[in-house]
């Protein structure tokens, strides 16, 4: 089974983020980038499918040149090849443009399955995979928590609201967006990191793919969220904070 997995580089979860002077993105240089967490689960699932069924894993990313680091991480964990569709500022591309770029790159070679994370930790539109399925003209399922494959028949378990699930059948080639927590992700071994250096990492300039650079949607303004409540911040030592809170919960909020 030849699996393509799409990975995005995003700011680290606990990074302190600051607004850019333009006011519509963050300062990326202090955001210590890492692999988007849901994508890490998708990569792990791709590697497990290869271990079970044979075939290959190719990691794709559309992003700025620095995004190569998440592809190197994928190679170190066991992906066979990687492709970076690169262009300055691509981390800000809207999902339709990103999916068009990925589709143009992925279409170049046959595949059985494309996996993506269900959403990114930065923009969080949660749709690049679903749009990619439309552009590649393959069936898909979003928010998948289990994959069973028999030949080209796939039975996947989809997560629905409030603890409900549903199984869905389809025939490969197909695309699945992977829910976090579907597996336990592996760490790259020293041997893996060494081996990764000999694996192919192709760079395709985004401009060569003939995808429109016009944004489909635009972030006009980014700003700190507006408070919906008056929050009383309790200060002092942990002991003082705790005592003040118990007092307030008992006599002000009356919830104890």
């Amino acid at each position: 089974m030849d699996v393509v997995v799409c990975l995005k580089q995003v700011p680290a979860r606990d990074a302190a983020l600051r607004l850019s002077p333009a006011g519509n993105w963050i300062e990326t240089f202090d955001a210590s980038p890492e692999m988007n967490e849901p994508d890490a689960y998708a990569l792990e699932e791709a590697l497990r499918l290869k271990e079970r069924h044979g075939g290959s894993v190719t990691a794709f990313s559309a992003g700025p040149p620095e995004a190569a680091s998440v592809l190197r991480e994928a190679l170190a964990k066991g992906a066979d090849a990687a492709v970076l569709i690169e262009g300055e500022g691509l981390e800000q591309a809207d999902p339709l443009r990103t999916a068009r770029l990925l589709a143009a790159g992925i279409r170049r070679k046959p595949f059985d399955l494309v996996l993506t994370g269900l959403q990114s930790d930065d923009a969080g539109f949660g749709q690049t995979g679903v749009v990619l399925a439309e552009l590649l003209d393959v069936p898909h399922a979003a928010i998948v928590v289990e994959i069973a494959a028999e030949g080209d028949r796939l039975t996947v378990k989809q997560e629905l609201e409030a603890g409900w699930f549903q199984k869905v059948e389809m025939t490969a080639p197909a695309l699945l967006t992977i829910q976090s927590g579907i597996n336990k992700v592996r760490y790259a071994t020293l041997m893996g990191i060494k081996k990764a250096r000999t694996k192919p990492l192709e760079r395709i300039p985004a401009a060569e793919l003939g995808v429109s650079v016009e944004p489909a949607q635009k972030i006009a303004k980014l700003y700190a969220p507006q408070k919906s409540k008056q929050t009383q911040m309790l200060t002092g030592s942990a002991k003082e904070q705790a005592e003040a809170l118990v007092e307030k919960l008992r006599f002000e909020a009356r919830v104890l």
Partner: peptide, 23 residues
């Protein structure tokens, strides 16, 4: 913004060559 819409909404917009502002 339900699980079902997350599964098909962006696909519908893409078919019409349009963006989908999710969530």
């Amino acid at each position: 913004h339900t699980y079902q819409v997350r599964d098909f909404g962006p696909k519908l917009a893409a078919r019409m060559g349009r963006a989908f502002v999710s969530d």
